[in-house]
Design a protein around this nucleic acid. Structure first.
Length: 574
DNA sequence: ACTAACGATTAT
DNA sequence: ATAATCGTTAGT
């Protein structure tokens, strides 16, 4: 490694002679064999070594254009390796956004693969110090307590104080002095336990492997992780803060450093994993690497990465499987009653009832719709009462004022209705309220405005009677009568009609419009309700038809546990 | 200078 | 879509 002189033209950007706390045992990189000095670095995609940009004359800007980069040494050794650049388009995009290249190259976000630790490095993380390598939240500090997972309000949004980088995190984010001692104690006891865990024997490791395979995290298994966590560390809550991803490429490389840095426990885990891998291979490959096709009766060699010699064989086996398994499953299915099915039926029944109700309501509303129209027609035939318009206003209260709900100007109560109606129309017609689709409701007259706006390609979704944007109120003729049906006690019609001239009646301004809107709004509501019910019905039906479908039957089955045996979950482990 | 808060970005 | 957490800002 030290031999890479060809690239050696200048040392790293600034003096790297043993920097502060990570000086002595900080790992060294690059052709210059000096530590990460907080400058731009790029990683070789072949040997995984990191290089100071300055040492090899690669700037951060250049790195952005690079997709795969190999160091001189690797390139010399293997002629097929060549530095690959990213297509121009994506580079420009990247530059525009001024985002650091996630792939590799920039030290901020470079990922340390040498030790398999994959610890992130960023402006706030050196990636080397103990807090950076720490993967669990303490659940104790104020930042932890703020987190959702510890029941906090998520206001502070900072990571656990124990995980704030010693080098790069802001001072104020690190462990506070008063808490420090306490947390340190906890930490110490933890690491002691970690050492203890080295002593796990083969059996336990096998067990571990099982649970690992089942998707558990070792920290969710109190019996395997440290039992002596102190009074306040809940092992269930303390989940891994940094997850270990699968390394996509190359993991090989068993260099000495790797071993040095990996905690012993991990070593053991890995060794075990490898063992498992070997045994798997022995089983499946039978040494030679060639396998017989699993197709029924087929003796051909299977294709690479497949268990079969052909599509046909795969399909045959699958068909056989269905013939073999399905009858049993159907029988099984028929043996026990299906609770979900029962519930579905009930639900369906309920939905039907509600649909029926909604339909009745709709009919009712349609009836009212027609009633209203006939009332309006009748009202039009009334004669204007010429004489006193005086009774119209008991109009002494000139100083009484109310405020318009739209423009908030004070208005005289006499003209308030008129003013507010116009004011509302003015504001309302300034905005649009549309949807991409025209309304399609069969058998419903005059509901939505549905005027098409070619500019926004939408259809207006206001109630037609209320849309000031697309329909103007008809001009009132001079001889038109108001005609609003008069009522007693608010609701009870008297059969009389208001016979003031329409232009002058302030009390019943726009009454037809409002009454129509009232009916229409209710009709719309019922339609929506119906729509919702149909949707529900469809969902329930789909669920029911899928329930005993081929796929479901093949994939799931109900296991009838012996009711006499103990439920294992009630055991002391839970 | 410190802190709480929070929008924004990135990872999962 | 949600969780993690970074970077910025207003307030003290």
């Amino acid at each position: 490694m030290d031999s890479e002189v060809s690239d050696m033209e200048q040392g790293p950007g600034h003096d790297s002679s043993m920097e502060g706390e990570n000086g002595e045992n900080a790992p060294v990189y690059c052709i210059c064999r000096k530590p990460d000095i907080n400058c731009f670095m790029i990683g070789c995609d072949h040997c995984n070594e990191w290089f100071h940009g300055n040492c090899i004359n690669v700037t951060e800007k250049m790195a952005k254009a690079i997709r795969e980069w190999y160091c001189q040494k690797c390139r010399d050794k293997d002629n097929s390796l060549e530095i690959k650049y990213r297509p121009k388009k994506s580079r420009e995009k990247e530059a525009e956004l001024e985002r650091p290249d996630k792939q590799r190259g920039t030290p901020d976000f470079k990922i340390d693969r040498r030790r398999g630790s994959r610890i992130k490095r960023s402006a706030r993380m050196c990636g080397e110090c103990e807090p950076c390598r720490r993967t669990e939240d303490c659940a104790q500090c104020d930042f932890c307590k703020d987190m959702k997972k510890f029941g906090g309000p998520n206001k502070i949004r900072q990571k656990c104080r124990l995980r704030q980088c010693e080098v790069r995190a802001r001072k104020m984010l690190r462990v506070r002095d008063d808490e420090f001692q306490m947390l340190k104690d906890v930490d110490d006891s933890r690491s002691k336990d970690e050492q203890l865990s080295d002593e796990y024997d083969e059996q336990e490791l096998a067990l571990y492997q099982q649970y690992k395979a089942a998707g558990y995290d070792d920290h969710n298994m109190p019996w395997l992780s440290d039992e002596d966590d102190g009074p306040f560390l809940d092992p269930v809550l303390r989940k891994r803060a940094v997850k270990v991803k699968h390394v996509k490429r190359r993991e090989k490389k068993s260099d000495k450093k790797k071993e040095e840095y990996k905690p012993r426990r991990h070593k053991q885990k890995q060794r075990h994993r490898e063992r498992v891998k070997h045994s798997e291979r022995a089983e499946t490959r039978e040494g030679s690497g060639l396998r017989q096709c699993l197709g029924p009766g087929c003796v051909e060699v299977s294709r690479a990465n497949s268990k079969y010699c052909s599509e046909d064989c795969g399909m045959k086996l699958a068909a056989n499987r269905i013939y073999e398994i399905l009858p049993q499953r159907i029988q099984q299915w028929q043996q026990s009653p299906c609770v979900a099915e029962e519930q579905g039926k009930k639900l369906l029944e309920r939905i039907r009832r509600e649909q029926q109700q909604a339909r009745l309501r709709l009919q009712d509303m349609e009836r009212r719709f027609h009633e209203l129209e006939s009332i309006i027609v009748k009202a039009k035939q009334q004669q204007v009462q010429q004489d006193e318009e005086v009774n119209e206003g008991d109009s002494d209260d000139t100083d009484l004022q109310i405020f318009c709900v739209s423009c908030s100007h004070p208005v005289n109560p006499k003209v308030a209705l008129r003013h507010m109606e116009r004011c509302y129309a003015k504001y309302e017609s300034q905005t649009s309220f549309g949807s991409m689709y025209p309304t399609r409701i069969e058998g419903a007259t005059r509901l939505f405005c549905d005027v098409y706006n070619p500019q926004s390609k939408t259809y207006c979704k206001r109630l037609q009677v209320l849309c000031p944007e697309h329909s103007r109120d008809p001009k009132v003729q001079a001889d038109e009568v108001c005609g609003c049906p008069l009522v007693r006690d608010v609701f009870e019609p008297t059969g009389e009609f208001c016979r003031v001239a329409k232009r002058k009646c302030n009390r019943h301004y726009c009454w037809e419009k409002l009454r129509r809107a009232e009916v229409d709004l209710e009709r719309v509501r019922v339609w929506y309700k119906l729509d919702e019910l149909f949707e529900q019905e469809r969902n329930v039906r789909t669920a029911m038809t899928n329930r005993a479908g081929l796929l479901a039957l093949m994939l799931h089955q109900t296991i009838q546990h012996d009711p006499l045996t103990t439920d294992l979950r009630t055991g002391k482990d839970r």
